[in-house]
Amino acid sequence: MAGTKEIRTKIKSVQNTRKVTRALEMVSASKIRRAQDKMRASRPYARLMRQVIGHIAKANGDYKHPFMMERKDVKRVGYVVISTDRGLCGGLNSTLFRKLIAEIRTHQQNGVEVDIVAIGQKAATFFRRIKVNLVGSVTHLGENPQVAQLIGIIKVMLDGFTEGRLDRVFLCYNDFVNTMVQKSTTDQLLPLPASDTLETAHDWDYIYEPNAVEVLDSVLTRYVESLVYQGALENLASEHAARMVAMKAASDNATKLIGTLQLVYNKARQAAITQEISEIVGGAAAV
C-alpha cells in the first residue's frame, strides 16, 4: 500500500483547492448582481448630462469650450486605465494591458508621448514597471466605488488637457457585455466627440448663473467624471464576471483531477490486494 497514501493526500489537497475556488466563484456570482445594479443606477445621470450639454450647445452656439475642440497636431496623449485591484480573474487585466501596450507602442513610434493614470492595483504595478509616464494613480476603490475617489486623477488629466500638455485623453476599461463576455475598450474622453445631430433650435437662450463659461466648464467636468465613473463600474462588473468564470473552470478542473486521481488510487489499491492474495496463495501452496 505504498503509493496509495500519497494519492490520498493529493486528493485531499485538490479537494481543499476546490473548496476555495468554489467559494470564490459563489462570492463573485453574488457580487455581479450588485455591480450590475450600480451600473444601471448611474446611467440616468449620464443621459441627462448629455441632454443638458446638447441644450447648451444648441442655445449658445458662439462659445466653444476647449474640451470640445479638436487639436490638429497631437504631441502627447493621456490614458486613464481602469484595472482590478485583485487577481484571479482570468485574462481580464492582461488582455486590456496587451491591447493598450500595442497602442502605446504605435504612439511612441509616431513620436507621441504617453501619460498614464492608473486606477486599480494591477494597473499601478504594471505601469510602474514599464517605461511610461505615470502621472497619477488611485487604488482600492473597493466594491462600492465613489465619484469622490476618482476626482483627483481625473483632475490631473483635465488640467493636463486645459494647460495644453495633453492633446487627447483616452479611457481604457473592460466593458461588461454579459457574464461570459467582457470587452477591453478604449474610448476617447477628450476632446469630447462632437454631438452629431441637434434638432433645429427655436430661438431661446438660457439665463446663466453666474455665466455661460463657468457653467459649461463645470458641466463638462462632471460629464467626464461620470464617464470615468461609469467605466469603473463596468470594470467592476467585468471583474466579478471574469472571476466567476475563471473560478468555475478551476472548480471543474479540480473535480476532473479528483476523478482521475480516484481512479489511480482504486487501481493501486486493487493491485495491492491482488498482490497480497497471490502472496498468501503462494505461501499456502509452499507449505
Partner: peptide, 17 residues
C-alpha cells in the same frame, strides 16, 4: 478640495515610481 485630490493622486504615482 479638487486640487488636493489631484495632488494626492499625483503623490500616489510618485510613490509608486
Amino acid at each position: 478640495l479638487d486640487e488636493a485630490a489631484a495632488s494626492k493622486a499625483k503623490a500616489e504615482a510618485e510613490k509608486l515610481l
